[in-house]
Simulated scan of single mutants.
Amino acid sequence: MREIIFDTETTGLSPAGGDRMVEIGCVELFNRVETGRTFHAYFNPGRPMPSEAEAVHGLSDVFLSDKPQFGERADELIDFIADSPLIAHNATFDFGFLNHELGLCLRDPVCLSRMICTLAMARTRHPGAKHSLDALCTRFGVDRSQRVKHGALLDAQLLAQVYVELTGGRQIGLGLVAEAGPALDRPLVPAAAAQRPVRAPRPHSASPAEDERHRGFIAAMASPLWDRYLAPI
């Protein structure tokens, strides 16, 4: 199954309040394995970058000044994501900005039925724990040493590894089900073991001498319990 992990960087928290998307990064998974295909783009938001947002992702007005508008690469992005499920951390936020930008350039919004939120998954699996991307990377042993600031493509690549762990780990992709059929055709006993000489079973019954010693032990007991119920022979 094809899935897309994605992340966005923005000028703020509210598309309805005029904030815009300035970066998107997408990572393609097939059967929860990264294929190496990605989509990454920066966008000129057409408005000044607030210092608070720049402190988070490091994208300045100067850096974004020569970047295309979202609409200039919208069709390329739509082709990449196609009809695959879209996975994001705090997905409501990223879907809100993605659909806002699509609406501004007169493209159809992405249906929310395609949304998968790893934040919601983490809260269900580890209630009461920290659920930030950094915290989940630490929990699952994902190397985030290159994450000095937020970056859409890097964060999507980190989230792809976290998503695999949240959905069962790498064991999902081992193909055990596909190999189960051929495995049944193999002999249950290795050939080397089948050629070993058969050893006669060891005797486990008591010898006559052991029987005699046992009878003597029983006879020496004073008033055994079973004498109350057994008639003398």
Results as ranks from 00 to 15, higher is better:
residue 4 I to E: 02
residue 4 I to V: 13
residue 5 I to D: 01
residue 6 F to A: 01
residue 6 F to M: 05
residue 7 D to K: 02
residue 7 D to V: 00
residue 11 T to D: 01
residue 12 G to S: 12
residue 16 A to V: 06
residue 17 G to N: 03
residue 20 R to T: 01
residue 20 R to W: 00
residue 21 M to H: 00
residue 23 E to G: 01
residue 23 E to D: 13
residue 25 G to E: 01
residue 28 E to K: 10
residue 29 L to T: 04
residue 29 L to P: 05
residue 32 R to F: 11
residue 33 V to Y: 00
residue 34 E to H: 00
residue 37 R to K: 15
residue 40 H to M: 03
residue 40 H to N: 15
residue 42 Y to M: 05
residue 44 N to G: 10
residue 46 G to Q: 07
residue 48 P to V: 06
residue 50 P to Y: 05
residue 50 P to M: 02
residue 51 S to M: 11
residue 58 G to K: 07
residue 58 G to W: 04
residue 61 D to T: 10
residue 63 F to V: 12
residue 66 D to P: 01
residue 69 Q to S: 11
residue 73 R to M: 12
residue 75 D to G: 09
residue 75 D to S: 15
residue 76 E to W: 00
residue 77 L to F: 13
residue 79 D to I: 09
residue 81 I to H: 08
residue 82 A to F: 04
residue 82 A to T: 03
residue 82 A to M: 02
residue 84 S to F: 09
residue 84 S to M: 07
residue 86 L to I: 07
residue 86 L to E: 01
residue 90 N to W: 11
residue 90 N to A: 07
residue 90 N to T: 03
residue 95 F to W: 07
residue 95 F to H: 09
residue 99 N to D: 04
residue 100 H to L: 10
residue 104 L to R: 14
residue 105 C to M: 12
residue 106 L to Q: 14
residue 109 P to H: 13
residue 110 V to W: 04
residue 110 V to C: 07
residue 110 V to M: 13
residue 110 V to H: 02
residue 114 R to Y: 08
residue 116 I to V: 15
residue 117 C to N: 10
residue 118 T to I: 05
residue 119 L to T: 10
residue 119 L to A: 10
residue 119 L to P: 06
residue 122 A to S: 15
residue 123 R to L: 02
residue 124 T to S: 15
residue 124 T to R: 15
residue 127 P to S: 07
residue 128 G to F: 13
residue 130 K to M: 10
residue 130 K to N: 09
residue 131 H to A: 10
residue 132 S to Q: 09
residue 134 D to Y: 06
residue 140 F to Q: 04
residue 141 G to H: 09
residue 142 V to T: 06
residue 144 R to P: 06
residue 144 R to F: 14
residue 145 S to H: 03
residue 146 Q to T: 13
residue 146 Q to P: 04
residue 146 Q to C: 13
residue 147 R to G: 02
residue 148 V to Q: 12
residue 148 V to G: 07
residue 150 H to I: 08
residue 150 H to K: 14
residue 155 D to I: 08
residue 156 A to L: 00
residue 156 A to N: 00
residue 157 Q to E: 14
residue 158 L to K: 09
residue 160 A to W: 00
residue 164 V to L: 05
residue 165 E to V: 01
residue 166 L to M: 03
residue 169 G to D: 06
residue 169 G to P: 02
residue 169 G to S: 05
residue 169 G to L: 07
residue 172 I to V: 10
residue 173 G to T: 09
residue 173 G to W: 01
residue 173 G to R: 09
residue 174 L to G: 06
residue 179 E to S: 09
residue 181 G to H: 03
residue 182 P to C: 00
residue 182 P to A: 08
residue 182 P to V: 02
residue 183 A to P: 04
residue 183 A to F: 14
residue 184 L to T: 11
residue 186 R to K: 15
residue 186 R to Q: 14
residue 187 P to L: 07
residue 190 P to Q: 12
residue 195 Q to H: 07
residue 200 A to R: 14
residue 200 A to S: 11
residue 200 A to Q: 12
residue 201 P to G: 11
residue 203 P to C: 08
residue 208 P to D: 03
residue 209 A to R: 11
residue 209 A to K: 11
residue 210 E to L: 11
residue 210 E to F: 06
residue 211 D to S: 00
residue 211 D to H: 10
residue 213 R to M: 12
residue 214 H to S: 10
residue 216 G to Q: 15
residue 216 G to W: 04
residue 219 A to V: 01
residue 221 M to R: 15
residue 222 A to V: 14
residue 222 A to G: 03
residue 226 W to A: 08
residue 228 R to E: 12
residue 229 Y to S: 13
residue 230 L to C: 14
